[in-house]
Design a protein around this nucleic acid. Structure first.
Lengths: 300, 300
DNA sequence: CTCCATTTTTGTCATGGACAAATAACACCG
DNA sequence: CGGTGTTATTTGTCCATGACAAAAATGGAG
């Protein structure tokens, strides 16, 4: 394989670390140490990009960059070791079987296994239990280096299809509330949204799915146009946590007070104190709880 | 409505203009002219953000920023006028009916109308004719300012569900070729991929969908792991054309020569001269042609 | 141990200069 | 007059360095 070098923009894309951050790390910690092209622009070797990706992954777990970038390679791999991050979990065999199918690169078999598991367990159980566990297992396998990026993509794609299919098959909602589902710009993880849409639609709520990355102003407009009762946002664990609070505050200020604002996903848990009128939904089961609360309040 | 001020990061999110670009415009053209907070950081008034969004829209049509930012408000609104950009097109009524449904914010009716149209026309006709026309109609309506961003999101989301559902319903492929479908990082438009997947699966090709934004190195690994015969990439018209050629060249260099590389979507047409071993597929119908060519060559 | 104040860590923003790719403008020739 | 090659302008991205504020860690008092 040719030794390709990465520009700073390419590294930002591949790692999710901002250009400013990459430069300031170099200045402060002495890593990374990119070469320079004829014009003085940074050229990152693939090995350093790989290391940066691992660092980012560990940071998403809550570890601090100062320790990580100055750590030795051995310490890094030790941190990424199963024992360090993957608490043993109960597994009836279904999980590992599906993981193996992803690794086996057999799309058709993977799809039918997922479909079969969903039908066996029922949609609600599938979404509350199996899907989150699968997501975590995939994420952990990726961190341990057992999964390639494209294998994670393949999994996400299949799961996405399955969930959308399930949603399509559900009866049209009638009871309310009307829920606008989306993510903020920069947040492109879609599975959380789809799982939420499944649960809400199962309970008879009317979902208005906007997909990912809706600008804040347009979320407000959508809530108004669709006469929404709730706006539900999903933040993945990879989303820069320092940006969550300002985003949410700005959105809350723009929305009418009568519209509820729910936050879900791994990135919302790190929020210290939610502003007034914002409900953090810590898990998928919490959605059902929030829904029940809303309905109770609505009848009064 | 409170007069909220936007930080430079917020403006980048809402407009899609990079921070560096915003600063350099201010330096060169004298617009925008943000206020400053106590710490000297830029605070953009909402009116300027709105103007920036309009400028960005017009730039996506090919107009140049130098003219736009120094233009008067009147000139701007004149450029954004329907007559300036939207050639009338033949329309049997189905198109405008669906557009009206999107604007009517009735999710359930929109979904059933799309489903019905698909079944009436048959999947292949639907994808070759109606879907591209709808996409264009939506894009044009958006340019004219008749569509909000969230309305485009809603349309995309519904179409995505419909196409994924159609793909799931198709029989598993058996004939080959094996096609890896994805987009490069930064390219997040997914409808082109799904339409291609539909057509290919209809013809019995085995698709390996990786979703959007797969890093180049992982596209290569996926092609190898899945024993792919073809890698198909989709570039939307919005993708920065200056980046297409370097990306494609790099990918072509990394792939084995036996693996074909197909490019589709509006962003691939602006490619001056494709490198050796790269096939530009100018339209959706071209996919069927490329497929036929591949099969003919494979039998020899 | 809990809670509050202080220090360290960390990401983001500012300035001003530079360069290269893309585009427009222009001169030239058939 | 239309096509073509060359120069000029436009435009986005990158760099270096300095600064600051929010978040996290630390430490001390109750």
């Amino acid at each position: 394989m040719k030794s390709v070098q990465f520009s700073i923009a390419a590294v930002e894309r591949d790692t999710g670390l901002a250009k400013d951050t990459l430069r300031v790390w170099e200045r402060r910690y002495g890593f990374p140490t990119p070469a320079r092209d004829a014009n003085g622009e940074r050229l990152y070797p693939p090995a350093q990009v790989e290391r940066l990706r691992m660092i980012k992954r560990l940071m998403d777990q809550g570890l601090r960059p100062g320790k990580l970038v100055s750590a030795s390679d051995e310490e890094l791999t030790a941190l990424a070791t199963p024992a360090a991050i993957a608490p043993a979990r109960v597994d009836d065999g279904t999980l590992s079987a599906i993981i193996q199918l992803v690794k086996g690169h057999d799309v058709a078999t993977l799809r039918s296994a997922l479909t079969q598991t969903m039908h066996r367990q029922g949609l609600q159980n599938f979404i509350l239990d199996t899907v989150p566990q699968l997501n975590m297992a995939v994420g952990e396998a990726w961190m341990r280096g057992e999964f390639e990026v494209f294998e994670e993509h393949l999994y996400t794609e299949q799961m996405q299809s399955l969930l959308r299919q399930a949603i399509s098959a559900l009866p049209v909602a009638s009871r309310g509330p009307r829920v606008v589902l989306t993510t903020v710009p920069e947040e492109q993880h879609v599975l959380g949204l789809l799982m939420s849409e499944c649960l809400l639609t199962l309970e008879g709520a009317a979902c208005i799915p906007l997909g990912t990355q809706t600008p804040l102003a347009d979320i407000v407009r959508a809530a108004s146009a669709h006469a929404a009762d709730v706006v539900a946002l999903s933040f993945s664990a990879a989303f820069p946590s320092r940006q969550v609070l300002p985003l949410v505050s700005q959105l809350r200020a723009g929305l009418p007070p009568a519209v509820a604002l729910w936050l879900g996903g791994g990135g919302s848990e790190r929020l210290r104190c939610a502003p007034d009128g914002v409900r953090v939904v810590p898990s998928l089961a919490g959605i059902l709880e929030a829904l029940a609360d809303w309905r109770q309040q609505a009848t009064r």
